[in-house]
Amino acid sequence: MDQKNKILEILIKNKIDNINIINFIENYPICYLEQIGDSVIVKGTSDRNWVYISSKSEEELKIIKSRLNYKDKNFAIIEDWMIPILTKGNKIKWRLSTMKLVISNIKVIAKSKHSVSKLAVCDSKFIYENSNYKDFISMPYIIERITNGVSSCIRYMDKLIAWGITQDDGAIGFLHVLPEYRKMGYARDVMIDLINKVRDENKIPFVHIEEENEKSMKLAMSLGFKKDRVVSWFEIE
């Protein structure tokens, strides 16, 4: 068994905890993998060169930190307790923290009230222009996600009014409805479609939502998502 499959076998033992890193390993170029005790460190590239870590041990995490070099600037899905250890001696350039929510295996019974379809690459510019996260995403990333990820959208008179796409770690994200079309159930229908499409690929649907985003939190939990843990992405200087 090669190193990649060996690491995946370890991670799958705690599939919910490690679903992000599993999806990333399966879909992007990986340049470094190592098991340290029960912990795992993975370095790979999507829109940035990312470091992913699975660990429950402070001692093992300190060893993992010793495996980092000056090129390791961007960290993904890091739990709060890990951050002081990983950033010791460095300044954080930016940080995005969210609640990870995971849905159970219970099928979503509700049906979409509106017609849903897939996004096209030509939608990427419009999605970027209407994003609230321009500091964290780019046009090439959106194009890659539309091309290789799972997407859903609603159009009105050929105008894109609501959409969502899976992120590089498989999380359902990019959920957005144009302001003038909100409170009409479009976000719910896009989410239902994405949940079912992710399940059709035998994956676990999950999302990352900033906790102060009450509307998105309420929508996710109404569809059956349950809070899992707070995770962060950050870049060190």
Rank of each mutant, 00 (worst) to 15 (best):
W94P: 04
S124T: 00
F75P: 06
L68S: 06
I92T: 06
M99A: 14
S124N: 01
K107D: 08
Y128W: 04
D123P: 04
N69F: 06
M82F: 10
G89R: 11
S104H: 11
A76K: 12
R95Y: 10
K125Y: 03
N90P: 05
S66L: 14
I103F: 03
N90K: 15
L119G: 01
K88H: 09
I83E: 03
I103P: 00
C122Q: 06
I85F: 12
K88L: 10
L101V: 07
G89C: 15
F75G: 02
I83F: 13
I127M: 00
S112A: 07
D123L: 02
K91R: 11
K113S: 05
S66R: 10
I83L: 07
I109H: 05
E79Y: 14
K71P: 03
S66G: 13
Y128M: 02
F75R: 02
I78M: 13
V102H: 00
L119C: 01
L119W: 00
I109E: 04
I85C: 15
I78G: 06
V121H: 00
M82H: 09
N90Q: 15
D72K: 09
I109S: 05
L101P: 05
D123I: 01
T87L: 14
K113M: 09
C122A: 08
I106V: 11
I78F: 14
K91M: 13
K91P: 07
S124M: 01
S104E: 14
S115I: 10
K107V: 11
D123H: 03
L101F: 10
